[in-house]
Write a protein that binds this DNA or RNA. Structure first.
Lengths: 107, 107
DNA sequence: CGAACATTTAAGTGATTGCTTAAGTATAAT
DNA sequence: ATTATACTTAAGCAATCACTTAAATGTTCG
């Protein structure tokens, strides 16, 4: 058995700039490989492989249409990233609030 | 010249689970390597190397205190991640709103 | 059917990663 | 000064990565 989709972590899926670029492109609209690949200075297999990783992370879905494969953004898993980063948001937005709290408790 | 800090991309800095764990640990409080390393099932050099990557991404800062190095979270660069992911937020939160808008414009 | 097309899978490669152990460098304690 | 402490840097290694070209797999069209 050669094996299935091979689930990848969403964080490492988005770590490659090329893959973020692909997501960004798909955010405008779903499209077939061919058209998607036009945007990038990369061989078709390279794009296909990136897509496989994104698919493994659940970030894109594919639909067959004749001999084409239409790729579509599936942003759902990015919510994990949003939730993760939100935990740290207080460290940069809360600076003033934190100072206020400190001064309140240490007048 | 062996070279400087070597700036790393914040996205790849946070792609490694070990590094996210380190950030999480540092979010509770700043601490010296020694104490930080206790939390992990990893050699000291391994932690040190992860820290170097995080430092390269500007996610931690170091301060010398005697022979110790006190590491401190610097969440600032995570704002880039937050901003990036926010661009996609509409794709999972806005489903209903988007449908509403669509129906409004295409009654 | 056979040729053209859209895409994936395979195979190979150089670079990078995540770790390890061993050796170095600074600072502090005796 | 010597030795212990707290770390970093170096060297090495197996695994993974991001690509490439070449070959294979559907799928449509003439």
């Amino acid at each position: 058995m050669t094996g299935q989709p091979l689930a990848t972590d969403v964080f490492s899926a988005i770590s490659a700039p090329a893959r973020r670029a692909i997501l960004s492109r798909l955010a405008t609209s779903e499209m077939p490989m061919q058209k998607l690949a036009e945007s990038f200075d990369m061989s078709l297999p390279a794009v296909s492989q990136h897509l496989a990783v994104l698919k493994g992370a659940g970030l894109v879905s594919v639909r067959k249409a004749g001999r084409q494969r239409i790729y579509k953004l599936n942003a759902g898993p990015l919510e994990d990233v949003a939730n993760w980063v939100q935990e740290y948001e207080k460290f940069w937005t809360g600076k003033m609030a934190a100072l206020g709290d400190y001064l309140k408790e240490n007048p």
